[in-house]
Design a protein around this nucleic acid. Sequence first.
DNA 1: CCAGACGTTGTT
DNA 2: GTCTGG
DNA 3: CCAGACGTTGTT
DNA 4: GTCTGG
Length: 229
Amino acid sequence: MCGRFVYAAQCGENQLAFPQVVFPNEIPLRYNIAPGQDITAIANTAEPRADTFKWGLIPSWAKDHKIGNRLINARGETLAEKPSFRTAFKRRRCLIPATGFYEWQRNPDGKTKTPMYIALKSGAPFAFAGLWESWHSPEGQRIQSCTIITTEPNDLMAPIHNRMPVILPANAYDLWLDPAERTDLQALLSPYFAQEMTAYPVSTLVNSPINDTPDCLKPAKPPEQSALF
DNA sequence: CCAGACGTTGTT
DNA sequence: GTCTGG
DNA sequence: CCAGACGTTGTT
DNA sequence: GTCTGG
């Protein structure tokens, strides 16, 4: 799955990576983005424009916004059928700019976990495939929210975790952002090219979302292997 | 007809 | 909102 | 994803 | 254990 990510691009790099998108502001630099927080996404509106969305999709029919806490990911394999996602899959897709993400890999002891940082070898920004919604609270307040789509792991991710977020290749952005209703996009939701990605362990500093600093990206020593043989 | 679910992950 | 189950 | 809370009453 | 909050 994907429960934490990073956006720490160089100034101007986002416009280079997403030339067709309007950025009213630079995307804030973040080193430890957690579910429930406001993130920047590009919705498939007539003019693709970076905007703010709460991470954790709140379906339009929800009575309570808290359901979004559990819908931070959506399985790509079943999007078209799930009541919470199928309409958004047809009509409300988005790109979520990132420069990396974290996954917690279970250690050989079977109990503890080591956080891993995963990014492109190029270090360039990329985009998660996402869905967005606009929810109206009973009090009349509007909340825009979004979710990150997941798929099976590629060869790099398989040892780390049994799911990974969908990273779209740049040549798929226009198709994913087509404002038209469409149902032919499932093929885009596949694992990204493993040979273009890299992964390394980081410290447990990243465990707490309070820590949102460049230190989160520092390589850490891998966990001790079991001496029992 | 109305009531109730609607999701992912990980863990057991 | 829309589908399933009772 | 992980961290942290998880409760009531009465008093200030 | 399970839910909420970040």
